[in-house]
Design a protein around this nucleic acid. Sequence first.
DNA 1: TAGATTGTTAATCGATTAACAATC
DNA 2: TAGATTGTTAATCGATTAACAATC
Lengths: 216, 216
Amino acid sequence: MKKRKISTRSVERLSIYRRALMHGRHEFGSSVYSHQLAQACQLTAAQVRRDLMAIGYSGNPNSGYDVKRLLSSLATFLDSQETRAVAIVGMGYLGRAIAAFLANRSDKIRLVAAFDVDLDKIGLSFSDVRCYSVRQMPEVLAEKRIDIAIVTVPADHAQHVAEQLVAAGVTGILNFAPVVLRLPPRTYVENIDMSVSLEKVAFFACASQRRKAGSP
Amino acid sequence: MKKRKISTRSVERLSIYRRALMHGRHEFGSSVYSHQLAQACQLTAAQVRRDLMAIGYSGNPNSGYDVKRLLSSLATFLDSQETRAVAIVGMGYLGRAIAAFLANRSDKIRLVAAFDVDLDKIGLSFSDVRCYSVRQMPEVLAEKRIDIAIVTVPADHAQHVAEQLVAAGVTGILNFAPVVLRLPPRTYVENIDMSVSLEKVAFFACASQRRKAGSP
DNA sequence: TAGATTGTTAATCGATTAACAATC
DNA sequence: TAGATTGTTAATCGATTAACAATC
C-alpha cells in the first residue's frame, strides 16, 4: 500500500468525511452520494469526488458510494497499520481536556503517557493515563515507542519541550502553545492557535456585523 | 477607516506577525526587516511584505519597518474600535482552559460570560467570569452585548447551542465541537477540530517516519 | 555612492470550478 | 431506456513566487 502525494487540506477533508459518515450513519443508509456528503461537510460535491478519487475509491453512478467500503478505504488511507502512541506534555486544563477527549476514542491513536513539571500532578492518572515528570520524558518516550506528542505547555517552555521530544524520536507534534516552533525538517508540526483563531473570528464577525447594519 | 477585502489566511498571518513582534520585542529592536519577521514566523519575506502592503503600512528600504508604528497599524487593522464581548458555552476542562487563557489577555477581546447546563457550575466564577445557566443565554447575551461566542459543548449539543447564539445576535463563533455547524450565512464560524488535527499529525508523522527509515 | 531592502509587476504554481462523455 | 451520478479533462481562479526598478 503506497501513499500518494496528497495535500494537507485533502487529508483534513478526508478526516471530516469519515467523521460525517460515522456520526451520521442513520441519515445516509448503506450508500451515499457525493452531494449528500458534501452537504454534511459544507463542501462541494466535486470536491468530495476529487478527494475520494485521490484515495482510489470508486463510486457507482447508480448508487453513489458504499458507506461501509468507503469507511474502510478511508481507514486504509488515513490510518497506519499499527496503533500510534501519543503523549501529552502539560497537564493543565487544556491537557486534561485533551486527555479526556482522547480517552473516548477507540481507534489507532492511543494516548499512553502524560508529562508535567508540577510535583502535585506527577504520579497521578488523568483519564486513566499516568502523568510522569518531564525529566523522565526521554526514557518513557522511548520505552512506549511514542512518536506523536501534543504540546500544551506555556509558550515560553514550548520550544525547549519540542526539542526534547524530537530528540527522543517524536516525528509529529500537535502544538497548542502560541509560538512558532523551530524544529528540524521531517518533523511534522500542526499548530492549533486559539488566540489567532479568536482574532480571526473577531475580525470577520465585525465585518459581517457592519454589512448587516448597512451604511446610511 | 475602510477594511479592504483580505483573505482569512492574511488575517491569520497578520495576527501571527503581531504576536511575534510583541513577544520578541527584544530580538528585533526598534525596527525590523521583512526577512527577520519572516524567519520568526517561518514564512517568506515576500509574504510578509505583501501582507503589510495589504494593510497599507510602508517600510523604509534603509531601516525596514518601524516596530512601534507597525504594531499600531496592525492594531488599527485587526482590532475593532470598541472592545468585543465574548462568551464561552460549555465549562468543561476545555472551556475552563480557554477562560484562563483569555483572562490573561489585555486587549479588545474580553471574556464577559460563561454558560453551562451543569447545576454545580452555574453561579460559580471561572477566572473571574460568572457562569450562567444556558437557559439564561438570550438575556445575558443581549444585556452584555455579546457578539462572539466560543462553543465547547459536546458534539451533540453544538448545533442547538449555535442556533441559540445566532438568534441572540452572535455573529462570530469559535467552534471546538467536532461537528459542522449549519448556520445562516453572515455568521462567521471558525472551527478548531482537534480530532482532525491529530489525524493529520498521525498521517504526516507516519509519512516522515517512513522517509526517515528508507526502503531497503 | 554602494548595497541591501523596499514596492510593484509579471510569471508560475496549485487548487478549485465548470464542462462533458461514460456509466449504471 | 431515461436520468442522475460518476470519473475525467479543460478552464478558471487565486495565491505564491520570481524578477526588477525605485528608494533610502
